[in-house]
Design a protein around this nucleic acid. Structure first.
Lengths: 233, 233
DNA sequence: AGTTGTGATTTTGTATACAATATATCATGA
DNA sequence: TCATGATATATTGTATACAAAATCACAACT
């Protein structure tokens, strides 16, 4: 497997791809006004293709476009994140349920590998560099992507991409504390077990709990940074 | 309530709106090559805004864009429709479950009205004009939209729009036979009952069954027209 | 000091021009 | 007749120009 939850086949527009990568990587701050000329400069093209990419990014929820006032990077309120994670729980829970009936030994082996890679990181000192975290996020994505693919529902994969593709600055929170990483690993193992044992309900339930845990960890760290940055406001 | 599952707030681009309406209404045949100049003429603007609208339509899955070869109206294989309806069942089932905890008496009254309008059509002679069917489709959409709104998950509404907004030529099949309309009405009543009684599980189960019925009816009529149009192929 | 109004500047929205690519047409030869 | 290749046409992709709208700066006034 090469790429993680890429736009399936919907994509294939290199400059939109580039913009999306920048947005997801957090190159532009949430709420930031994206002046077209600046983007054009950053992407090395003129405004015309930039506008197309922005229209698409708006459809995918990465930015919001206000008529005659341009595009701003989408901001996520805690409520937005809760909504998104609820949806993820429902959709990926369903994916796990369905995957039980279709997942192949090769796919299970792949999941095993990614789970092992994540597990290995537990042994290390908890001095996680940004690069290290990026690696973990990627391994985790691979793990989840296999299940989604194994569900056999093409459309589901597209939907989930829209929900999961939240800027990295939000997602990577989960991988900072070694505590959360341990819990996460436990669930990865449980999910694998349920899939191997062909227990659809267990697969779904475990997946849902896994995602809700991730959500809670994210919200907790969000609230904490909130407190730190604006104590009295 | 005014508009049905409009692009929430994601929209607000009049020319994209126009294009979407044409696509959903079936103005262009599935698989048809959408030459930009022609669209520009049809929409009364130049190619530039058309291309933006197309980029967006591609992101929403209404068309597919092949690099250097333009856009084609998305075609739906039976598998695509099955995937879409499965997702609908999952998502709207979830919406119904959540709606139990938040739906207001006003919203219930609104649903009652739309259900009644649909029920009234059962009494009439079954000579359904195209206009009549459009009315039924709309009433049905309103009914479902209220539940989705009542779920309280904004993102869910956006997701469902992407799944539900399948060209009319596919959707309206369900409303041709008076048999299906009767079954549909039965489920509308059951769903309302479950919501009023505040039974989340019943609401979800009934909604899911309702959607699966719709799917089966659609597939059945698709296969039949398939047989009629190409008997030997 | 704060508010409102006016002009300058920035930024968006659309049209047009042109280059790059794909498709269609048609002649040539087996 | 059919396949193949060259040429012409059509269509997409990008850049630029300009009009419309919003934002900003700053002065005049209360």
């Amino acid at each position: 497997m090469s790429i993680v939850l890429t736009g399936s086949d919907t994509t294939a527009d290199p400059i939109y791809e580039k913009l999306r990568r920048l947005l997801i990587a957090g190159r532009y701050a949430p709420g930031e006004h994206l002046v077209e000329e600046r983007l054009a400069h950053d992407l090395g093209v003129s405004r015309t293709p930039v506008r197309q990419a922005l229209a698409r990014a708006a459809a995918e929820g990465l930015v919001r476009i206000y008529p005659n006032r341009g595009a701003v990077v989408r901001t996520f309120t805690p409520e937005d994140l809760i909504d998104a994670y609820d949806l993820r729980a429902v959709l990926e829970g369903y994916a796990a349920y369905q995957a039980v009936f279709r997942i192949t030994p090769e796919q299970l082996a792949g999941m095993e590998q990614h789970a092992a890679a994540l597990e290995a990181s537990l042994e290390q000192t908890f001095a996680s560099t940004e690069e290290e975290i990026l690696f973990l996020v990627e391994q985790n994505q691979h793990f989840h992507t296999i299940i989604i693919t194994a569900s056999g529902n093409q459309r589901l994969a597209e939907m989930l991409m829209l929900v999961v593709n939240v800027p990295l600055q939000y997602r990577s929170f989960n991988w900072y504390t070694s505590d959360e990483r341990r819990v996460s690993n436990f669930f990865h193992r449980s999910i694998l077990q349920a899939l191997r044992a062909r227990h659809p309900d267990r697969a779904r339930a475990t997946m849902q709990e896994h995602i809700y845990r991730g959500r809670d960890a994210l919200l907790k760290s969000l609230i904490e940074t909130e407190k730190l940055s604006s104590p009295g406001m």
